[in-house]
Design a binder for these strands. Structure first.
Lengths: 202, 202
DNA sequence: TTAAAACGTTAACAAAAGATAAGTAATTTA
DNA sequence: TAAATTACTTATCTTTTGTTAACGTTTTAA
């Protein structure tokens, strides 16, 4: 995917939050950074400060942690036309507690933290950029609200069934043990859940 | 607690995000609503649109859900000097999926949704209000990020031990079965966890 | 103040999940 | 392409959790 198309996709996504006119876009474009990740490249590594806030024009990423025993624990995924960052690390400019890694070759349109600072002080763009930042945070906040709600009110099996409903395409692209972590269970347990669901007891 | 003190506490909290000068405060104050809740009064009810975004000057609230079988499931708590709203409902102006109820008599400094709209278009205050909104959303997003992380990487027992560390005072004020829900386990299970922790096997 | 309701603990049993290991299939990569 | 690695399932055993019910205590409300 070339930069023109990446920018196009980025614009479309941003405008689902806030509308910018042509002049504003010309100015905003100066602050964008294009980043290409190959499969397994890191967008952020644990212990390092997340420098960019990214939009996935193409590809996908996985957010994970490494336990003391070396096991990788997957928290989350982001796909094309979604945003990506180690949010807390980016916002607070503190070392990330997670890794964010490309699941496949991935094209990103990014804004660095220092450019975000400049944009939120920019005479022409400040107001809309603040609003954009707020709406993005609110969007993800609502996602997390749902996710916490699910952990509290649903069993792992129910969470998996729910995920099957609105994430068929997603599930097919992701190794199952990553999904298991995402649901908060072990891969072995997810395998049993699948067995229970697909081959009901006679 | 009288309104002067409530406003004082509110100002202090807001200024931990964004600084407003005296003139700005005088203007902003026009948009505030003071709400008193008696114990067990609702701040928001399920199915109704959350009209206010509130700051708890004194008191505390509990966020909960009612399951099909009538059981109440507690999601979250907010205490004095914290913000409260059914975030998703307030932001999207759609019916709340949860109840928010006062755990004790509670004094709130609130801004209505329509006033938030006016403030984010206000010639004097817009920029700072947008920033305030963004920083608040980011703050809560980080809280949720931690909470989801805890569900994925920790056992209920570990989550409880963690909660004991930084929430001693909180735990003493809240019925234990509310805490159990918050941790994602049943009250019976939390009782067993407590037994395991406090009376270690000989 | 007394009766009713709500709380927390414990017990007993069933269901589910974790840990470990083994075995097969699929994918990677040298 | 062959060897190595990774992924998924299955089995066994242990631990934890859920469910239901009982019991004494505390709190609430009539």
């Amino acid at each position: 995917m070339d930069q023109v198309n990446q920018l196009q996709a980025f614009k479309q996504h941003v405008e689902s939050y806030v509308l910018f006119n042509a002049d504003e876009w010309l100015e905003l474009e100066k602050y964008l950074t294009y980043i290409q990740l190959k499969k397994k490249d890191y967008f952020v590594e644990k212990g390092k400060v997340c420098q960019y806030f990214g939009f996935i024009a193409a590809g996908s990423v996985r957010y994970f942690n490494i336990r003391n025993d070396g096991e990788e624990i997957t928290n989350f995924f982001s796909f094309a036309n979604e945003l990506v960052s180690s949010y807390k690390s980016f916002v607070k400019q503190q070392p990330s507690i997670i890794y964010v890694q490309a699941l496949e070759d991935t094209s990103l349109v990014c804004i660095s933290h220092s450019n975000i600072q400049k944009l939120t002080e920019h005479p022409l763009l400040a107001h809309k950029m603040e609003r954009f930042g707020r709406l993005v945070a609110e969007y993800y906040l609502c996602c997390y609200e749902d996710r916490v709600q699910a952990f509290i009110t649903q069993s792992p099996e129910e969470r998996y069934v729910e995920l099957l409903k609105d994430g068929q395409d997603v599930l097919q692209r992701i190794p199952q043990h990553y999904v298991a972590n995402y649901l908060g269970v072990t891969p072995v347990s997810l395998s049993r859940i699948r067995k229970r669901i697909f081959i009901p007891a006679k």
